[in-house]
């Protein structure tokens, strides 16, 4: 059974003049030990979705089931104690400004009703995990963004949660700090078996740490699966847009025939484009190329502009397909 199950989840906000459907019939299963990325453009509804998982937002339809418990059926008290198993970290860290690092980590445990001596011991352990022992008496205003997020992670971990929800947790950080925070999350997932849900608008976050990904577009869950599957064969427009965002921006003005070729696993080490030129005498123009390392396997894609001659085009496509590559037509502007 999945650890987190979202069934026909919907959320509608009623404003004075308009009704906004933030989430429409979302179905999603997240298993124990997954690092599940939920990605979408801003305004797609992903922040609302993650807040429905711990009922900070009450869905207007459907159900959220965590570890077999339907959240809608819980009493306020039972919901509060369940929230101790579902920690959350935020884009802006949300630390108590008037408490030092120790005090902030202790806070979650005070809420959980732990004894003072146990809290102190656990705070020491958590400081060790996030590497902030030497900063324990500093206040948030004296820490960098990355350090503050580490405090938030320590706070989130302190109550031994089953799940950690990350709402744009790295969006306010520079690339280097982002990498270190993501590494920490991956380590936590591996060592402690904690399921992690990551909300982000950055594809690179999903690539570097997630095992699974769901794509949210305009309140709909348009695609989900393992990161490898979704990244190598994106089906929906929204997924393609996110994965080939950069390429899409460049292609609008060109009307000539273009194809996208996808490399999976070993194929990305063959010099196919060079061979194409040498063996078939077809000069393809590389419009966009990107190779990514997804969970240890190499994935890449390229967008090629083919010569005007129809025969040459077919020859090139045939050749690439014979090399075991997937070839797709790219229509202008709609990557």
């Amino acid at each position: 059974m999945a650890l987190i199950e979202l069934r026909h989840l919907s959320k509608t906000f009623k404003g004075k003049t308009q009704i906004v459907e933030a989430l429409k019939d979302i179905n999603l299963e997240i298993n124990q030990g997954d690092i599940y990325g939920i990605i979408g453009m801003s305004g797609a509804g992903k922040s609302t979705l993650v807040r429905c998982i711990n009922f900070l937002e009450k869905p207007t339809g459907g159900s959220v089931v965590i570890d077999g418990k339907d959240l809608a059926s819980l009493t306020p008290k039972a919901l509060r104690s369940l929230r101790q198993e579902v920690s959350m970290i935020f884009q802006h860290f949300n630390l108590l400004q008037q408490r030092d690092v120790r005090g902030n980590i202790a806070f979650a445990m005070e809420i959980a009703g732990m004894k003072k001596a146990d809290i102190d011991k656990r705070v020491d352990e958590m400081l060790e995990v996030v590497g902030l022992t030497d900063r324990q008496h500093n206040y948030p205003s004296q820490l960098s963004g990355g350090q503050q997020q580490r405090v938030a992670i320590a706070r989130a971990l302190s109550t031994n949660p089953k799940i950690i929800l990350c709402d744009e947790a790295t969006s306010a950080l520079d690339p280097q700090t982002t990498t270190s925070i993501l590494n920490l999350l991956r380590e936590i997932n591996k060592k402690m078996g904690i399921t992690i849900v990551i909300i982000t608008h950055e594809m690179s976050v999903v690539e570097s740490v997630c095992t699974h990904v769901a794509i949210i577009d305009n309140g709909d869950l348009v695609e989900n699966g393992t990161v490898e599957d979704v990244f190598s064969q994106p089906k929906s427009q929204a997924a393609k847009k996110l994965i080939f965002r950069k390429a899409g921006a460049d292609m609008g003005s060109l009307g000539e025939r273009m194809i996208r070729i996808v490399f999976e696993g070993s194929a990305s080490t063959d010099p196919v484009i060079a061979s194409l030129a040498m063996e078939c005498h077809v000069a393809a123009n590389i419009m966009y190329a990107d190779t990514r390392d997804v969970n240890g396997k190499a994935f890449g894609q390229m967008i090629l502009q083919l010569p005007e001659d129809k025969l040459q085009q077919e020859k090139a496509i045939y050749y690439l397909q014979s090399k075991g590559l997937r070839v797709e037509e790219v229509t202008s502007g709609g990557a």
Binding site: L56, M88, L95, Q97, I111
Partner: peptide
């Protein structure tokens, strides 16, 4: 008071008096 901090407390299961 930053609503984000209040939201964080709620996410930890804090009651209204807390």
């Amino acid at each position: 008071v930053d609503p984000g901090v209040i939201e964080a407390a709620q996410s930890m299961g804090a009651s209204i008096p807390e």
